[in-house]
Design a protein around this nucleic acid. Structure first.
Lengths: 157, 157
DNA sequence: GTCAAACCCATAAATTCCCATTGAGACCCA
DNA sequence: TGGGTCTCAATGGGAATTTATGGGTTTGAC
């Protein structure tokens, strides 16, 4: 009920087939908000990471854009929709609770073995750990936590 | 209604499975303010301790941030959301009235066997006792109380 | 047929549940 | 007021689930 927001973090492995477990906390949100077990994933407009959310939120984004342009079919409207949805991919969450990234998505963030899931309310982000650690506006808490998680995996920060 | 704040203190043990009893006084507040029996826990921005609060308070924090950046999609917004939602963990309060810390939460404050719960109004803090005692701006009353609690446990301050 | 994607199974490790024990304090009553 | 009793809180342990992750195997598009 009250907690239907993507909250928290997780450090998971991408296997040879590009599969990654979706953290349970995030799966619960998807289940609570959408009837479909899938994620919309695409590059962030602002950072060197991926952005992911449930179909329900995607529908809300679309509605918002359409409202903003008041049903007038302008070039800007087309552009906004293209920008919001053109670069995204729908990924099913399989029976093992994981998604299979496309090669393109993986390349966009230059992911290697581990990726870091970071909750952001209406959506969550997927980072290559080293990229996030090198981010100029990284806050200390996030850095401490991520370093600690990498350490627990025996990975060099 | 109005007086439902986290007040008081408690010194409890973290067991091998990282479980800790939530003080009854705090449990009551959670029950009074939220329908869900869980706590949102994360590192403090200011001190070397954890901060914990109920889902209701979390919802308020969230609303505040979303209002501040309403309609303003930007890099700063993404950063603020990440900070607000990414660094915390939701912990269920189980039937034995306790929460199970994650290894990362425990490590963030370098907790050992005992942790000290300290009410702070809208939220409460969780400290490693020795860290709190060594805190530069620790007030004498808090110090005296904590020392007495540790003593009652037969723990060296 | 070939290659990749979707499925299904396997397993070790981490997490959650449930039950047990002990002790402190609240309650009650003569 | 002194016992005796009852409840709840704090903490421990083991069993039952759920995860995360790896591997085959079938499906199906060309």
């Amino acid at each position: 009920m009250a907690g239907e927001q993507y909250l928290g973090f997780a450090l998971n492995a991408v296997d040879a087939k590009l599969r990654v477990s979706v953290p349970p906390a995030f799966r619960e949100i998807v289940a609570a908000r959408s009837s479909e077990r899938e994620l919309i994933v695409g590059p962030s407009e602002y950072d060197d990471c991926l952005v992911a959310y449930d179909p329900d939120h995607a529908a809300r984004l679309r509605a918002e854009i359409e409202t903003r342009y008041e049903g007038n079919y302008s070039r800007e409207r087309a552009q906004a929709l293209r920008r919001a949805f053109g670069n995204t991919t729908r990924l099913k969450i399989d029976d093992g609770h994981r998604i299979t990234l496309t090669g393109t998505l993986k390349d966009l963030i230059e992911a290697e073995r581990l990726v870091y899931f970071l909750g952001a309310g209406e959506y969550f982000e997927i980072w290559k750990p080293s990229t996030l650690l090198a981010s100029p506006d990284l806050d200390p808490a996030t850095a401490r936590i991520l370093r600690r998680e990498l350490d627990a995996r025996g990975e060099p920060a």
